[in-house]
Amino acid sequence: MTAYHSAQNGPEAAVAALLRCPVCGQTVRLDRRSIVCPARHTFDLSKHGYINLLTRPARAKYDKRLFQSRRAVLLGGLYDPLHELAAAKILQSCGGKSPILLLDAGSGEGSHLARIRGKIAAETGHAIRGVGIDLAKEGVEMAARSYPELLWCVGDLARSPLGAGCFDAVLNILSPANYEEFSRLLAPGGIVLKVIPEPDYLIELRRLLQPDADRPVTAGSRAKAHFRERFARVDEDRLRCRVRLDRPLLPHLAAMTPLSWQAGEEALQRIAELDQLEVTIDLAVLIGRKAD
């Protein structure tokens, strides 16, 4: 967190502007290596640079191995088309503003936010600030180690430790959502960018891991309907393309998704022995705006 704060004219101003006490909702200040509110609720900064703002222990669904594999596949380029599209959509909505402040809600190991932020910064030359929040401590720790220029929080979106009206764009990529909270966090004119899997998303991997994977995926239509109920104006794009991954990334591709949890060793070994695999990226990218 040191690099993030030094770029924002001092740590106290940056923290006070973005964070709220998750216990009482008051603003906070940085007191050496702790975040403290006026009621003296105190949360320590990790030696790795993230803030744990959970009020009680929580068990995350994903472990360190999954995040490591997801990092490898992300850096290998699987989601580059998504990052290009997301950056373009954010620029279309917020491009004239500087700085732009992004929140990744369900940030995992941090690479989605870091790469989207990097593309926007390269395009505009503007300051792009970013905050990631996730329930999984292992993912947030990896993010803080790899991207210290961003602010990373372990926290619960149902009781968000973030201030109202701060963010120009909230990213929610293949992750559970809390739209009431997202609306509270948006700055005037801000957007929520929600990514939902379409029926052919990673279909090649699903066929290898689960023989019955040809059954249509129906959860996406329900997620879209729910999104449209929550925002006054919604735009939707379909991103569909094929990306080739070479052999070193294929075990990571299998391990990065819960699809592998029920797969047998024989299926996992078949994937590991392939020279390469073309996989389908099939995603809906929804942009939601609050009513004026």
Results as ranks from 00 to 15, higher is better:
Asp63Gly: 11
Pro148His: 12
Cys94Ile: 02
Gly96Lys: 04
Ala58Asn: 13
Ile51Asn: 09
Asp168Pro: 07
Lys119Cys: 05
Ile173Trp: 06
Ala39Thr: 10
Asp80Lys: 09
Ala121Trp: 04
Glu109Ala: 07
Leu101Val: 15
Asp156Ile: 14
Pro38Trp: 06
Val131Arg: 03
Leu78Thr: 11
Val36Asp: 07
Ser111Thr: 15
Arg65Met: 10
Ile173His: 06
Val154Thr: 08
Ala86Gly: 08
Ala144Glu: 03
Tyr147Val: 07
Leu85His: 06
Ser146Asp: 13
Leu150Lys: 05
Pro161His: 10
Pro57Asp: 12
Ile116Ala: 11
Ile133Phe: 03
Glu123Thr: 05
Ser34Glu: 12
Arg40Ile: 01
Leu45Met: 15
Arg59Asp: 10
Ser69Phe: 00
Val154Phe: 07
Leu103Asp: 09
Gly139Pro: 00
Ser146Ile: 03
Ala58Glu: 14
Ser146Met: 10
Arg59Cys: 09
Ser111Leu: 09
Arg115Lys: 12
Arg40Met: 09
Gly118Glu: 09
His126Leu: 01
Ser160Arg: 05
Asp168Ala: 11
His41Thr: 02
Glu84Trp: 02
Ile120Asp: 03
Asp134Thr: 12
Cys37Gln: 06
Ala121Leu: 02
Lys119Asp: 07
Pro161Asn: 10
Ser107Met: 02
Ile90Ser: 01
Arg59Met: 13
Ser34Asp: 10
Leu82Gln: 04
Cys94Ala: 14
Tyr50Pro: 02
Leu101Arg: 15
Leu135Pro: 01
Ile100Ala: 03
Arg145Asp: 10
Val73Ala: 09
Ser46Asn: 07
His126Gln: 08
Ser69His: 09
His112Arg: 09
Gly165Phe: 12
Ile120Leu: 11
Glu149Lys: 12
Gln68His: 10
Gly108Gln: 00
Leu101Pro: 05
Leu135Asp: 00
Ile116Met: 11
Ile173Tyr: 02
Tyr147Leu: 10
Leu74Phe: 13
Gly139Asn: 03
Ile100Glu: 03
Ser146Gly: 08
Leu82Glu: 04
Arg145Leu: 15
Asp156Trp: 11
Leu102Ile: 02
Arg33Gly: 08
Trp152Met: 02
Tyr147Pro: 04
Leu91Ser: 00
Val140Tyr: 03
Ala164Lys: 15
Glu138Ala: 15
Lys47Val: 12
Ala86Phe: 08
Val36Cys: 09
His48Glu: 15
Leu113Gly: 00
Ala87Asn: 05
Lys89Ala: 11
Lys47Ala: 15
Gly95Ile: 01
Gly49Leu: 08
Leu53Met: 15
Met142Ser: 10
Glu149Tyr: 12
Ala136Gly: 07
Leu85Ser: 05
Leu102Asp: 00
Arg71Met: 10
Asn52Gln: 01
Arg71Val: 13
